[in-house]
Design a protein around this nucleic acid. Structure first.
Lengths: 336, 336
DNA sequence: ATGAAAGCGCTAACAC
DNA sequence: GTGTTAGCGCTTTCAT
């Protein structure tokens, strides 16, 4: 069965009023129509199964109440929380949200994704856990679309809602120190991007406070992945020189945990693990993972909030916002 | 810095040609413009930083090459695979894809999400792992938008790409039978929707072939969740009457595994677990989970393919397609 | 309070 | 090949 698409004109004819009136009624401009007109229009619209063509409406209004979220398609298990936060606040504020997945920097579908968003004139963009190439940023700015980063803070970027990575590194290290550890590993962190560098900074800072200078061999860089963690454990088992290690992510920590099982290392008896992120993986893992937990849902909420602010008030002010982290003590760190 | 939005007219003026020509060049209608015009237009467009307003274009063309994917926001860990499959095929076919997350049936933001999609005149909708209320389906059909279900097959629905749930239940059970099991549990499945009922059917069928009739107490219904699995293990430990259990999902299986650890039950020595889904959780879990694996990426690909077909050829034919499952043997099932 | 008419940015005839 | 024009479906002055 084919339905023809019904326009405002059809409704107008059916209701015996002008298109203008239909438009006014349907967009609820209360002061500009009478009750009898309203009744007729509503009835006609319902009868015809009318549905507004938002695209046409947006075209003339030169606005578009949809916010686009760009998510890294790299397997990040905290995306769910960010999405939850975003959806909640967006719907409270009557914005629609669409999500798009993009590959990482190097693979290069980013420009295309951004093109699609700017050419569709979305009213705002949140970059969730992605690092964007310079070209794409320029495009967004040329299109005059407000945007904000969430969860990942690129270097030199000020429009961003995230945890303070120095703080994460610092608190993680400090916690282990307080549990009696002195030789502390750092596993799975990249050392090319901002995040890795900053966490490392915090790590050094905490260590410095107790006058220990981190040895190069305590570091096992990686890419936040399960595999990084898996390999890290084997490495630390070999060097036998740390009593605890901080992992770059929960996924990475689980990799270490499994590697420990597979290689006969008991956690936390022989080695303590402190994870960064605090997603539900920490509860699911055995032993449950003690973590420096980020509040991803809050990031999503604050991100959208900041964005809506920029959209509504065309405010161009810097929106750097830091979301606090906390330590969740579970079973993977041993006091020594 | 404010950029003004530049239109086709601006480009035309800058290039010294008519808007029509600009449009033709920019949409690459090769046969309708000369090289000198092309050069001028391209240069002017680049200089001005012109970007097409797709909304206006779509309005006149009465089409919109974006496909929307509606995903259940319920924590499903196989969404990633579906998304990967979808993105791959869509981009190969020059369709843009946007994703929206909807809550489950009962919570009721579904109508709103569907409204936003139909009023934006997306050219197709894939319902990924969601069950849609009747009202929403009607809306989509009234809007004359092609759609297809992926991964979940609602009762009486024919436009769907998914595994055969009877087959899943059958193969799972059969596999355990071949491993020597006779008393087989079924945990975490719902018994109200189609999926649960169908898998149960397959389960009974396999059992019937060896002349055993399933006992009611072998069943522990649930909602596919980690918690369902966690509770299931305690239940089976108490009744002590099955040697193996089939879990509704990988998440559910992991729940059982952890519950086993916490309750001192050894897997697979004391109880075998066969999971359904086969996501990367199976590799991550310890012991690694033997599973009936669904090919989610393939579902995504086939789903989009079917949809594009409907869009291009306005074909209205039934698109039921079954994606084969396979058994991945790992370490959670013991031969007895 | 309502109708008529212009126009959002673009494309697709239709001329030439 | 290229310019001109009408019009996609809607909103919004401007009259009345």
């Amino acid at each position: 069965m084919k339905y023809m698409v019904v326009t405002i004109k059809d409704v107008a004819k059916e209701a015996g009023v002008s298109p203008g009136t239909v438009s006014r009624v349907l967009s609820g401009q209360k002061k500009f129509y009478g009750p009898k007109a309203e009744a007729k229009v509503l009835e006609a619209a319902a009868k015809l199964g009318y549905q507004k063509n938002i695209l046409a409406s947006n075209l003339v209004k030169k606005k578009n109440n949809v916010i686009a979220v760009v998510i890294s398609s790299v397997q990040t298990n905290f995306a769910d929380s960010i999405i939850r936060g975003i959806n909640k606040v967006a719907s409270e504020n009557n914005f629609d949200v669409i999500y798009t997945y993009t590959t990482s920097l190097d693979e290069g579908n980013q420009p295309h994704v951004i093109d699609m968003l700017t050419s569709r004139r979305v009213s705002g963009i949140v970059l969730a856990s992605v690092i964007l190439d310079k070209e794409s940023i320029t495009k967004i700015e040329r299109a005059d679309i407000p945007y904000t980063f969430v969860s990942i803070t690129p270097e030199n970027e000020t429009r961003t809602i995230s945890s303070d990575d120095v703080d994460i590194g610092y608190q993680a290290t400090k916690y282990l120190i307080n549990q009696g550890h002195r030789r502390i590993g750092l596993a799975g962190l990249d050392n090319q991007y901002y995040t890795g560098k900053r966490r490392f900074e915090g790590y050094k800072k905490a260590l410095k406070e107790i006058n220990v200078s981190p040895k190069k061999e305590w570091l096992f860089p990686g890419d936040y992945s399960y595999e990084s963690g898996y390999d890290a454990l084997k490495y630390y088992k070999k060097i036998q020189n740390v009593t605890a290690v901080i992992t770059a992510s929960d996924t990475c920590a689980v990799g270490m945990l499994n590697s420990a099982t597979d290689n006969g290392v008991r956690i936390p008896e022989e080695l303590s693990i402190l994870s960064i992120d605090g997603t539900n993986l920490c509860e699911i893992a055995r032993p449950r993972l003690t973590s420096v937990s980020q509040n991803f849902e809050e990031m999503g909420q604050q991100g959208i909030l900041a964005l809506i602010d920029m959209i509504k008030f065309k405010s161009t002010e810097i929106s750097r916002k830091v979301i606090d982290v906390k330590i969740d003590e579970r079973d993977s760190v041993k006091r020594i």
